[in-house]
Design a protein around this nucleic acid. Structure first.
Lengths: 223, 223
DNA sequence: AAACTAATTTAGGCATGCCTAAATTATAGA
DNA sequence: TCTATAATTTAGGCATGCCTAAATTAGTTT
């Protein structure tokens, strides 16, 4: 069995590799809140375990074996988030932190029981896809909200899960995965978005919008 | 925050102290499956944290602060056992191992939510009392089954939780906390117990009986 | 092509928590 | 009382995983 730390590294490499290919030591270290020197050390260990491809100064990527473990941990994490949310009523903005600790510790049996209880779900409370038991993840087809144009309507697909305060903020607008909205106005010069959610107008700053990803984008019906 | 290892030591000292006062290094080490030298090391650390009273060669006991932490961990453990059993259907003989890992990792919030879900229970699936949030534990009034005499009837109060095979064995007789039975015969010379559970006669060996604790002992009605 | 800069790696240290082997101590028995 | 034995403690080592500081390297700039 791997250590919790090693599992965290694999999970992080997976996520960073998703958006950007090879993962540099510095980026990884920052993501894990660790010094680059520490990341180098762990990367070397993971390489000897053949979980990672690595050459000095050249960045890391996961091997198939490393990816399988990363997806297993991510599956734990997202099932736990959804379970805590649905079964225990843990608030939206609290499930990530809790799952972060539990993901390393639950058995395959408990994983399977949560999965069954939840009806074999495919997304966590933030809209992130849950890999199935074979490590197959749904493709992410959503685009950042910052790509939207005036008048377009869409549905929230996913929001970043790691900032609790941001999640509370989004929650206060009812901006959950599945929520539909329409862009009323995009202020020029990197300005905020004014959107219509179920008849309510809300203004969303660009920094916040960066963390919201949307689906089913449609141009205005009336031209 | 304490390390998981330190928490395990405190929990173990608490349990051993329950039945036998001062806890020797050797007993503690054996209970934790660790060498005595390692136990000495941790005991010293716990002493500097004032969680434990200790003098060389003289054994350990918990201070009030140490006891409070031990009870908190035990509360986590027992709530988790019951939760896993009731909410997720984890089998009787599997909850202990699972809870052993989770107990160090759940938040107070999740603890409280499980407690509420379970209706503020007072005993885990093995009949062990669950300390309340203030660290108050119910007195254990049960006696070992091996104290029973011919003809006496009683109710199972508690069974040891740490041996999965033993639990499966007891389960196969329906010997759960709350189950009533009557002693038909105690074979002489440290022999087995023949008991009547809801009309079924079963034979229970002494080694097994040592791990069963009973309540509400009554002498036979008809003399 | 040489030099500079920024990123990365190496070297050496520290805490945790375990181990083995050797010393110490308590305690019971001669 | 003195000694033998069994338990305990000390001493020294090892793996993990982090750190800081110093050296190295890649890649760009001049």
């Amino acid at each position: 069995m791997l250590t919790h730390a090693a599992e965290d590294y694999l999970k992080s490499i997976y996520k960073l590799q998703e958006k950007g290919g090879k993962v540099s030591t510095g980026i990884l270290a920052e993501y894990l809140d660790v010094k680059p020197a520490s990341a180098t050390g762990m990367i070397k260990k993971l390489k000897t375990m053949k979980l990672v491809r690595y050459e000095r100064y050249r960045g890391v990527t996961l091997t198939a074996a490393g990816r399988a473990i990363a997806l297993e941990i991510i599956r734990h994490h997202r099932l736990l988030e959804l379970y805590l949310f649905k079964a225990l009523g843990v608030p939206w903005d609290g499930v990530h932190e809790e799952a972060e600790k539990l993901e390393h510790v639950i058995s395959e049996d408990v994983e399977a029981r949560m999965d069954e209880f939840l009806g074999y779900p495919t997304a966590d409370p933030h809209g992130a896809p849950i890999p199935d038991k074979n490590g197959v993840v749904a493709e992410v087809a959503s685009v950042p909200m910052t790509d939207l144009q005036n008048g377009q309507s869409c549905v929230v697909a996913e929001v970043s899960d790691n900032d609790s305060a941001l999640l509370r903020h989004l929650g206060s607008f009812n901006l959950y995965p599945g929520t539909a909205f329409r862009v009323i106005e995009v202020a020029p010069f990197e300005g905020p978005f004014t959107i219509d959610i179920a008849g309510q107008q809300v203004v969303i700053g660009r920094e916040v919008a960066k963390h919201v990803f949307v689906d089913q984008v449609r141009d205005p019906d009336n031209v």
